[in-house]
Write a protein that binds this DNA or RNA. Structure first.
Length: 152
DNA sequence: GCCAACGTTGGC
DNA sequence: GCCAACGTTGGC
């Protein structure tokens, strides 16, 4: 079982929005970066996903979700009306991947990026090393450290 | 709103 | 295959 971190802009889709979806969850669509896509393809149901709010007043890890589907082709890539349409993707050879995630819990306190940067045990997080990667892996150790920061 | 980081595109 | 031009992400 693996751990991940997924960024979302709260103005677009927040942890609150995910909670409102309940057990049905939300397709994590629109990922259009190969590295991030490859991480989606490695996900299996039951994997844990940190939800990270980006491009907002206080960028932070705010809670956690769970992968509840297998990876599958992202249908938005084939829909010309979608903002995520990619003419280079096709039904025969789908380029992009989506998984569905469901809300698990809000963390006691958000863990701000600022604090993550100040924490030596988290210096190797992919979040910090590749600032533009929207889906990234998290180690068990990193997850534990983040959880501890959330209750302090 | 600025701009650094960095991924993608396309000419050669 | 190199690399300049360009577009996007996301912190600040």
């Amino acid at each position: 079982m693996a751990n991940w971190l997924a960024k979302t802009e709260p103005d677009e889709f927040s942890l609150d929005d995910l909670e409102a979806r309940g057990k049905a969850g939300e397709p994590w669509n629109g990922i259009r970066n190969y590295q991030a896509r490859n991480h989606l393809r490695a996900m299996v149901p039951g994997d844990r996903v940190l939800i990270y709010h980006s491009a907002c007043a206080e960028p932070a890890v705010v809670g956690e979700a769970e992968v509840i589907s297998e990876p599958r082709p992202d249908p938005d890539a084939l829909d010309p009306a979608s903002r995520y349409y990619d003419p280079k993707s096709s039904a025969d050879n789908p380029r992009w991947t989506v998984i569905t995630v469901a809300f698990r819990q809000r963390w006691p306190k958000p863990v701000p990026l600022k604090l993550i940067k100040q924490t030596p045990e988290l210096a190797e997080m992919a979040l910090l090393r590749q600032s533009r990667l929207s889906v990234s892996p998290v180690t068990d150790e990193q997850w534990l450290v983040l959880e501890q920061l959330s209750v302090q």
